[in-house]
Amino acid sequence: MIDARYVARVWRRNAVVWTKYWLGSFVGTVGEPLLYLFLLGYGMERLIKEVEGMSYSRFIAPGLILTASMYDATFECTYASFTRMTKQNTYRSIISTPVNLSEVVAGDILWATTRGVISAVLVSALLALLGLLDSPTLIFMPLLALLCGALFGSLAMVATGLARDYDFFTYFFTLVVSPMFLFSGIFFPLEGMSGWAVALAESLPMTWMVRMSRVLAYGRMDPAFFGDIVKSILSILVLFILSVRLIERRLIR
């Protein structure tokens, strides 16, 4: 049912639009992680001597790379996709052409993934320039961002499939995205927390992402690494299929 050529055409539409405002999009993408790094990182270093044998800034750096990917993909497939689906009728007009609705959804998620990868590349390069991260395996970070972008793009698309109006996304960000950001081990180690807290954190896909990002950022293997990859891929598949179902239910009567 899904033909990659048609998905690419939807992706290309989004890329064409992005070329009109790409410079502005970097402000949020790169600006936000840097704010956390400088204000939170260097501020907290006055209290925290070291975490897991490294400076606090170095500890939070890998997670901030994928935070950029997560937020970019999530914004793209919530507010932007929802606007195209409802207010602008863009989805309806694309499915009047040979492109299917599942390909429109896939194209939007693929574009969100692309945004996530671009962000990860920029933020990784900045952190490497600042000397915070220096492992050669850092060059594989875009591959991880691919997973991260696809996962959060699909999750956001599920939210878009459920949303009745823009207010829904306020709940989605407050109840899903922000806890994911704060409780996924970016800012504090999860080891040694009580059992229920660890179980909760382990259920959040961002936790898997952050753990994988540390493997690549420090060049230090983690026994959970391959399991995390498999869990991420399965989650992407499930969320993608669910989002297509939800959006088909809305647009095709």
Partner: peptide, 11 residues
């Protein structure tokens, strides 16, 4: 040619 305007306003 649909009834409602669904031109792409971003383009």
């Amino acid at each position: 040619v649909p009834q409602d305007d669904c031109l792409d306003p971003d383009l």
